[in-house]
Amino acid sequence: MNKHIPVITELGIIDGRDSIFLDSVEQRFSPNQLKFIGEINGELCENNHLGYEWYPYELKFNSVQAYDNGVFGE
């Protein structure tokens, strides 16, 4: 049986199916870079001490060798 262990962030545990939104994906070829841009729902964060409703985030990956932007279910 798999046990799901939550990732604890600066905002504590981010819980809920609508907690992390991906708004856009940027792909650059020079340099090989992939960036995910979105928002985290502050109401679903364990440690939302600042009281923000939304927290913006960017995840940047460098030297990307392969990336599949296919849609689930196709």
Results as ranks from 00 to 15, higher is better:
1 M>L: 13
1 M>C: 11
4 H>I: 15
4 H>R: 13
4 H>D: 06
4 H>Y: 07
5 I>M: 10
5 I>S: 07
5 I>T: 14
7 V>D: 03
7 V>A: 13
7 V>F: 08
9 T>D: 00
10 E>S: 11
12 G>E: 07
12 G>A: 07
15 D>G: 03
16 G>D: 01
17 R>F: 11
18 D>T: 11
19 S>T: 05
20 I>N: 06
20 I>S: 09
20 I>G: 10
21 F>K: 14
21 F>R: 14
22 L>I: 15
25 V>M: 10
26 E>G: 07
26 E>M: 04
27 Q>K: 12
27 Q>E: 10
27 Q>S: 04
27 Q>H: 03
28 R>S: 06
29 F>G: 01
30 S>E: 12
32 N>F: 02
32 N>A: 08
32 N>Y: 04
35 K>M: 06
36 F>L: 15
36 F>R: 08
37 I>L: 10
38 G>S: 05
38 G>R: 12
38 G>W: 08
39 E>W: 09
40 I>P: 15
41 N>R: 14
41 N>Q: 11
41 N>V: 09
42 G>E: 07
42 G>K: 07
43 E>R: 15
43 E>Q: 14
45 C>S: 04
47 N>W: 13
49 H>C: 09
49 H>P: 01
50 L>H: 05
50 L>Y: 00
51 G>V: 12
52 Y>T: 01
52 Y>D: 02
54 W>Q: 02
54 W>E: 04
54 W>T: 09
55 Y>G: 09
55 Y>N: 10
56 P>H: 13
56 P>Y: 10
57 Y>T: 09
57 Y>L: 13
58 E>W: 06
59 L>S: 11
59 L>W: 04
61 F>L: 14
62 N>C: 01
62 N>G: 02
63 S>N: 13
64 V>N: 00
66 A>D: 05
66 A>H: 07
66 A>I: 02
67 Y>I: 05
69 N>L: 11
69 N>D: 12
70 G>R: 15
70 G>Q: 12
71 V>D: 02
72 F>T: 06
73 G>K: 03
74 E>A: 11
